[in-house]
């Protein structure tokens, strides 16, 4: 400890130049038992790292639902770091296995939305890996700096897509799939009915794409009533596919058809009870 302290103090005076350059805002969700403890040890050992990460302590990384992450990206976060215990070390036994699965879904949704998935990072940090924590933060900050400021704030279309991804992350289908994913894989092992992981992932990816597109239709038609063609153009999705989504959404009573000019039907999202 003492040596690190002396080292840090010796360098204390030279503030880095260019204090006005853009600094990314990164949220770090750290689990109480390992990664937060690792960050604490990092502090105790005086390993220095850039000031960009703002840590939010959670009991377990498994608490971080896709919705939380996607809502924050929609709100303009430049980067999000999720820290957990190493696999098999989770204080809650299996928590971080779910975290891993959920992170995959989040990245997929970010990709669909057009946000660089590299802005989201999952790391396992143990309570003795103080130095590792500082390295991760340093590296990740560099990476986010390279990606530049989140474009969500300036690009309204991107923001809509981000909201759509957030919406998709809250759909029953995706959450149920990810919730059951681990169980299916495991059950496969125990009862011999092997459910291949890659097969399962394919299934989830396809579902993710569908749900994202539907969610985007809803977002876009929330703004104003739109025709299938218009939606297809904005979304860059073939109209027949848009139509199929609309059929599903209508069945679920989530979208209504209107005929403003009596010819081309347009669609408007049905909003219930306003914002939650």
């Amino acid at each position: 400890m003492a040596e690190n302290v002396q080292h840090a103090i010796a360098q204390k005076k030279d503030e880095p130049a260019g204090a006005n350059e853009w600094e990314p805002k990164i949220i770090g969700f750290l689990c109480n038992w390992c990664s937060y403890a690792g960050a604490d040890l990092c502090g105790v050992s005086r390993y220095q790292y850039p000031t960009n990460v703002r840590a939010v302590r959670v009991m377990c990384s498994t608490r971080i639902s896709p919705h939380i992450v996607l809502e924050l990206f929609t709100a303009g976060a430049d980067g999000i770091l999720v820290g957990g215990c190493h696999l098999n070390d989770c204080h809650y036994i299996t928590g971080n296995f779910y975290t891993e699965k959920r992170l995959r879904l989040m990245k997929k949704l970010l990709e669909d939305a057009g946000i660089e998935p590299q802005r989201l990072r999952l790391e396992w940090v143990s309570a003795s890996e103080g130095e590792k924590f500082s390295k991760i933060v340093t590296e990740f900050t560099e990476q986010v700096k390279k990606l530049g400021p989140s474009k969500v704030k300036k690009d309204a279309a991107l923001k809509t897509r981000a909201s759509a991804a957030d919406g998709a992350s809250q759909t029953f289908r995706l959450r149920a799939l990810v919730g059951k994913e681990l169980g299916l894989e495991k059950t496969g092992n125990v009862y011999g009915q092997k459910l291949d992981q890659t097969e399962l992932e394919k299934l989830i990816d396809a579902a993710t794409k569908d749900e994202f597109e539907r969610s985007l239709i809803l977002e876009l038609s929330k703004q104003k009533a739109r025709s299938v063609k218009e939606l297809g153009q904005i979304m860059d999705v073939p109209t027949d596919k848009v139509l199929r989504h609309i059929v599903v959404l209508r069945q679920k009573n989530m979208i209504a058809m209107e005929h403003p000019d009596g010819l081309t039907p347009t669609y408007k999202a049905i909003e219930i009870g306003g914002e939650q």
Partner: peptide, 8 residues
């Protein structure tokens, strides 16, 4: 732990 909440 919050796993159920993130899953439901």
């Amino acid at each position: 732990c919050g796993c159920c909440g993130a899953t439901c």
